[in-house]
Structure formats: structure tokens, C-alpha cells
Design a protein around this nucleic acid. Structure first.
Lengths: 234, 234
DNA sequence: AACTGTGAAACCTTTCACAGCT
DNA sequence: AGCTGTGAAAGGTTTCACAGTT
């Protein structure tokens, strides 16, 4: 799975004795909440008022025990014998994910991938959308993409607000520098699409999406299947 | 996690008593091998002959104990007191991932994202590259993208070969049908970029990359940080 | 009866720490 | 000395199965 959250960032607070409610939802659960949310939105669009763990689990592609355990971490508001109230659950999950008050998303790197991300419908649907596009290439500055005007990366500090999320879609060679500049500008959550390992200071969350790694993992499974087939006849 | 090859192929072989033919490499390890491989290629390009677990781990962004444990699953060939032979390890990992004999990659959906993927340098670097582009829109058929000619999706069976990997970069609404067609054509490994849950028969490996989910996970962490800051004063 | 919420078991992953090789 | 390989401990995740609620 994704390890997501960058390394040594358990600095938040020392194991203080007077720690308050530490509901602390597990990472694995967090990673599934967006999937549940999407399924719930679909159900709501279909006019469903309530849904059972069984039905929601199927729509989300997980099993129902896992779904119930996940929701129980949120303090869950299902009704035994009935199921979950769709609208209520949407509210709960959105709130948990912090989608209620949208934070801005700043994308750096307007090459092929950056353009694709800027135009990606999935973002806009609920809660999150890209608010600013930046690039180091002055030839691209001023260009209009998906309703946004590309600005120069030197304007970074002007477009970053408290709680911004940074998205890096630059070539690998530029990624670490862009990352450093994002961090310097106050960004503490970064999504990296460049195929390189980034280093961030403690307290900064870093996730990565690496397209070629995904393909290589599939290559492994494909390879293993082939080996099994040919070797099984022994 | 990912559903992988349904229960069907867990541990086909009985625990062989004698020669320790290595027992299946854990999923978590597989997911990191491509990262190690990239770091190793970088080291090789720099002329390094050997590397310690400490140094390689740092380049890959993991800790050294994890790296050593991961490599030990491959039957690892390090030398105590010295480290790992870079070229040898590249060979080992490539072979484990099945990159030695490239399998073809077929991409369906040549919208913004599909174009970005087709031009994505990361793929080509080592072992894997996209071999065919397909789209349902006849207006796009014939177009040249990154040296490939877009073909109509009805040609699917002509471009799929045994061991092909399918990549879905269509809108969500079309994804399941495309997936079904890929499966029907014999594809057993699929990477899905469409923001929707796909259903595949047992024996087919499915991985997904969902851009908006990644952002929502970061939104959660950002949100939590904000809450901690404002609420910590109690 | 239908369905949720949850302890407990099973399983997987990471980290530790050190034996053992070069 | 330096470094790998690995049991064992610690921690996290999934699944089971059923008590408890409507």
C-alpha cells in the first residue's frame, strides 16, 4: 500500500499524559473514505435514502465487515436493522476528510501530465479543485488551461494560502527544487507525480503517484502468472 | 488492498522441504522493488559498482532494515562487510519483476490523461513502454501521439498479445465496458485511471490510480493539522 | 428479522537487535 | 571493523463471528 505520510513526522506532540480524545482513524481507513464517499454520492444521485453496509461495501468494492469497521472509527451513525443514512454519512465523511472548507490546490508543472490533471474532472466533482497553475517556463506563462491562467513559479508565495496542497507534475530533475520551494512557501501537504524520491522535512505530508511503478507491479503479477502456467505442468 | 489474483493462486506449491525455493515475495515488497530498481539505475549511471543497504535505502527513501528484509525475499546476493553488487541487483530485481521480456502495454482512452500517459517518459526508461493506443472516438483514430497511431477500440483483439497489460484512461462511464472488453480479449492485468470501481473476474489483477482520492487523503491530513493547531491549546 | 458495532483471532508489515560472514 | 541476513517483537490491518439494537 501507499505509505503516504512522509517519514519522521510523529513529532506533533510528545506522548503527553493529558492527551485528549485520540480517536485517530487508521491510515488504511482514511485511504478508503474517498471511495465510500464517491459511492455514497452515486447512491444519493439515485435517490437512495439509506444503505446497508452490504450494499455500500459492494459499491465500493470492499467487504462489508471492513466497511463497518472503517465507519465505526468515525463514531459511525448507522441504525441497526436499517443501515446508514446516505446524506448523513456523506456529511460525516466529508467532514472527516476536511472537504467542508475546501483548501486550495496549487499545481506546478504544466506539461502533458499537468494539463491532464488541470482538466481532470474527478477533482472538481466534490470538494477539491485546482486553483492555480505554475510553471518555470516563461513561454507557458499566460496560457489559459481549463479556465486558469498559467503563472510563473516565482509567484508561488502569492498563490499559496494557509492550508494549500501542492501538486508536483514537473520532470523528475526539477521536482526536488519545486518541492523545497513549496515547503518554503508554507505548503505542508504535497502530491508528487514526478518519478523520483523526494525528501521533505518532518511535519510535511508527502504522497506520490508513480505511473511506471504501477505498471511494473502489474508486470510482476503478469510474469508470475506466466511462470505458474508454464511451470505447473511438471 | 488490491484484490489481486483472487484466492485461486495463493500458494499453489506445497512447502518444499529441501532446497529453499523462495516462498512468494510479499506484496509490500513487490511494491517497493521498482523504487529500488530506479535508485540502482541511478547509481549505475554514476558508475557505482557496489552499494550498502544503508546507502541504497536512503536513495529509495526507506530504512535499511526494511530494504534488507525486502531483498532477502529475493534470495538476495549481498556480501557481508561489503554490500550489494549494483549490476547484479539490477538483474535480480528486473528478473523478479518480469521486466526481462517486456510485455506489451495497451492504453485505451486518448483524452488528456491518455495523452499524458502516452508521452510519459517514466514508462520508457526501463522495460515498459506503451505499445498501442485505442479510443472509441473515430475522430481521434489515425492521430499520431508520441510516435503511435491511435486505433479504434474495435481493433482491440488485434493489438492484444498474450501477457499484455491494459491501461484504462477513459471517462468513468466507459471504464467498465472497456474493462470487460480487455478481459474478453485475454488481458489479465489492468491499470485503471478512471475514477470508478471496476469489477473483474477472478484471475485478473486490477490496480487503480485515483488522482482525486490522493488529493482527498492529503486534504484529511491538512485538515487534521489545522484542527490540532487550533485545538491544541486546551 | 435485519442489520450494525466490536472484541478476538488471523494475518501481514515494519522495526529491532544481533548472530554470523568477509 | 563493516555489513548482510534473519529470528523475534511490535504494530497495523483484515476477517470472523456474534452480541446487541431497532
Amino acid at each position: 500500500m501507499h505509505n503516504g505520510v512522509a517519514s519522521a513526522s510523529s513529532d506533533a506532540a510528545a506522548p503527553s499524559p493529558g492527551r485528549s480524545r485520540r480517536a485517530s482513524v487508521p491510515e488504511a481507513t482514511i485511504a478508503r473514505l474517498p471511495v465510500y464517499l464517491r459511492a455514497l454520492h452515486d447512491l444519493a444521485d439515485d435517490g437512495r435514502q439509506t444503505v446497508s453496509s452490504e450494499a455500500l461495501a459492494e459499491a465500493a468494492g470492499v467487504n462489508s465487515a471492513k466497511l463497518r469497521k472503517d465507519l465505526s472509527h468515525l463514531g459511525s451513525y448507522g441504525t441497526r436493522g436499517v443501515g446508514y443514512d446516505v446524506a448523513n454519512l456523506v456529511e460525516q465523511i466529508s467532514s472527516e476528510l476536511g472537504l467542508s472548507h475546501r483548501c486550495s490546490v496549487v499545481l506546478v508543472g504544466v506539461g502533458n501530465l499537468g494539463r491532464a490533471l488541470a482538466g481532470y474532472g474527478g477533482f472538481a466533482t466534490r470538494g477539491l479543485a485546482i486553483d492555480a497553475l505554475l510553471d518555470a517556463d516563461r513561454a507557458r506563462v499566460g496560457e489559459q488551461i481549463s479556465g486558469l491562467t498559467v503563472r510563473h513559479i516565482d509567484d508561488l508565495t502569492e498563490v499559496v494560502t494557509s492550508g494549500s496542497i501542492g501538486v508536483i507534475a514537473t520532470p523528475a530533475a526539477a521536482a526536488q527544487e519545486v518541492c523545497d520551494r513549496l515547503v518554503a512557501a508554507g505548503v505542508t501537504s504535497i502530491l508528487n507525480f514526478a518519478p523520483t524520491v523526494l525528501v521533505v522535512p518532518p511535519g510535511v505530508d508527502l504522497r506520490k503517484v508513480d505511473l511506471s511503478i504501477e505498471l511494473q507491479i502489474l508486470s510482476f503479477h503478469e510474469h508470475r502468472k506466466a511462470v505458474q502456467l508454464s511451470g505447473a505442468s511438471a
